[in-house]
């Protein structure tokens, strides 16, 4: 008699579902975004980053799930047996494009003078979603730039409030230097209790926040236009290695 199958943790069922008419298999504890990526289906997203906790704030990864009247964010929705998912439709494309336009109009995202030009996730999303112009008026609100840190700079004008910096600092580095203050359009990421970054007691200057920031909001000092390249790929390895200890 063959030995009973052993599962390393508690039992997790496997399910099958369809994503854009492709039949795929998945573990029950996976999210739609993960399973789609595994099967080569690209769903646009901004606040999600492999290795960090889910946030569900950018709303770009919304997908249509048969039987649900509402659109669901792929990053926070777990797969289920028999699920029928559509990641791309005329409506979804229109919504995604409008959301990216809203972001561009919200703060200052002028690529030509940005250190992240050419290496910016927001820029890539705009290209992907077909944003050739912004239909809503620019807000032109002025936010300040904090250069008080020795190595890094935060430019709130480029911030999209994805909170990747907040999450990486809390979940991975364990310092929880970053957080969000304010409400609505007045939200800002802050260091400690809204002190200048350079005066932060908790910041370890590890630079993880800079690496995960999708735009030119958190950058290394001394970079000129287009020079700020980021490598957030270390995260999944880091979380995986830590998980195995």
């Amino acid at each position: 008699m063959p030995p009973k199958p052993q599962s390393p943790t508690t039992s997790v069922r496997v399910v099958t579902l369809t994503i854009d008419d492709i039949d795929v298999g998945a573990r029950e504890d996976e999210t739609l975004l993960q399973v789609a990526a595994e099967n080569g289906v690209r769903i646009p997203s901004l606040c999600h980053l492999d290795g960090l906790g889910e946030w569900g704030g950018c709303r770009l990864c919304l997908v249509e799930v048969e039987g649900s009247s509402k659109l669901l964010s792929a990053c926070s929705t777990h797969v289920a047996e028999g699920m029928c998912v559509r990641t791309d439709s005329e409506k979804l494309r229109r919504y995604r494009k409008t959301i990216v336009e809203l972001l561009f109009a919200e703060r200052n995202h002028v690529c030509s003078v940005c250190v992240s030009n050419g290496h910016c996730e927001l820029q890539d999303l705009a290209t992907e979603c077909g944003v050739d112009h912004v239909r809503v008026p620019y807000r032109n609100d002025v936010f300040h730039v904090d250069s008080s840190h020795d190595l890094f700079r935060v430019d709130h004008n480029r911030c999209v409030l994805c909170t990747r910096c907040v999450r990486v600092c809390d979940e991975i580095e364990g310092a929880h230097t970053w957080d969000v203050m304010g409400r609505g359009a007045g939200c800002r990421v802050i260091t400690d209790l809204n002190q200048p970054w350079g005066e932060s007691d908790t910041c370890t200057s590890c630079g993880k926040c800079v690496q995960v920031c999708p735009t030119g909001a958190l950058v290394r000092k001394g970079t000129a236009v287009g020079e700020m390249e980021k490598t957030p790929d270390f995260l999944p390895y880091l979380t995986q290695m830590r998980g195995e200890v």
Partner: peptide, 8 residues
Amino acid sequence: GKCIPCRA
């Protein structure tokens, strides 16, 4: 201010 459609 968490999600973009509502905030912006």
